[in-house]
């Protein structure tokens, strides 16, 4: 009994730093956010918010810019995740023999990941400028026309391409590691059983890589959904807010409109929806695991 009590005290003592860390760095901001989300608050009244109920949530819910930003974030996250993972998968499998022999190639392929997203935005702002950038220069020289890369109709796709070019190496890295981890005995046994290259890929290698593919898709979707830096630098929130992601919407509500309560209410909604989606995915995964047993 005494030993158990001592263990319990030790456990409490050892867990204390973590608990304190969570309380200070997560708990306190979370409580402040919840209070602000139901308050009328500005920069001048940060220390004396006036509780106003759910009006901030109603304002967000009825704001067409919120739904426009949500739709932009969802489309951007989904499309970039699919494109990055598809390209990363093809490159990982196609380049695997080459990377295996020349490992320094991987370092070169990873270079885009080393650049801060805001810098990527600045770089493309220059590259795509009609009078300073090489791409419009050659388009004008060869075809006598300039493409509006950041105009209202093409800005979304330009942003997709910029994001995909930067983050495909991340997917490539994950898939290359997963591909290299496939046991050679399984591949050799399948080949001996007469499996062709395509069958081997489809029925053996891809199923074995499936957990990595799902994780990569999820990580890239989350990253794309919360995009801020490169989009903000390249197009701002876009004409009429057409390229405003949810992160940009919250930033602008907070800083530019000074609507702190509304911005925090939007982030609380975002948190609640994200939590529900992740909980749902976790629930489905655990049920599937149980069924397999």
């Amino acid at each position: 009994m005494n030993t158990q009590g001592a263990h319990s005290s030790e456990f409490r003592l050892l867990a204390m730093p973590l608990v304190l860390f969570l309380l200070v760095f997560l708990g306190f901001p979370a409580i402040v956010n919840l209070i602000y989300s139901v308050s009328d608050v500005s920069f001048e009244t940060l220390r004396q918010p006036r509780i106003t109920g759910l009006s901030n949530f109603a304002a967000v819910w009825n704001d067409r810019a919120f739904w426009q930003a949500s739709w932009f974030s969802f489309r951007f996250g989904a499309l970039t995740a699919l494109l990055e993972c598809a390209l990363g998968l093809v490159l990982a499998i196609f380049l695997s023999p080459l990377i295996e022999r020349r490992s320094w190639l991987m370092a070169i392929l990873m270079l885009p990941l080393m650049v801060a997203p805001a810098l990527v935005g600045l770089m493309y702002r220059l590259v795509l400028h009609e009078f300073a950038g090489p791409v419009p220069y050659y388009l004008w020289a060869w075809f006598g026309t300039s493409v509006s890369f950041l105009g209202p109709t093409s800005a979304f796709w330009t942003l997709i391409v910029v994001e995909t070019l930067q983050w495909t190496p991340f997917a490539l890295l994950l898939f290359y590691m997963a591909y290299r981890a496939i046991p050679t005995e399984i591949v050799e046994a399948s080949a001996m059983d007469g499996a062709r290259r395509w069958h081997l890929l489809w029925y053996v290698e891809l199923p074995l890589m499936a957990p990595t593919i799902v994780v990569a898709l999820l990580i890239r979707f989350i990253d794309g959904f919360r995009v801020f830096d490169n989009v903000y630098v390249l197009t701002g929130s876009g004409p009429g807010g057409s390229t405003a992601s949810l992160s940009i919407y919250i930033y602008e509500a907070f800083f530019k409109q000074g609507a702190i309560g509304k911005a925090v209410a939007a982030s609380v909604i975002l948190f609640a929806v994200s939590f529900a989606v992740l909980y749902g995915l976790n629930f489905i995964a655990s049920r599937r695991k149980g069924a397999l047993r």
Binding site: R125, L128, H129, E130, F131, S146, V147, S148, F149, L150, G151, P152, A155, L234, T235, G236, G238, P239
Partner: peptide, 12 residues
């Protein structure tokens, strides 16, 4: 005005 003017500010 250039078709990308919707992304132009001082420097551009």
């Amino acid at each position: 005005t250039p078709s990308d003017s919707l992304s132009y500010e001082f420097a551009e």
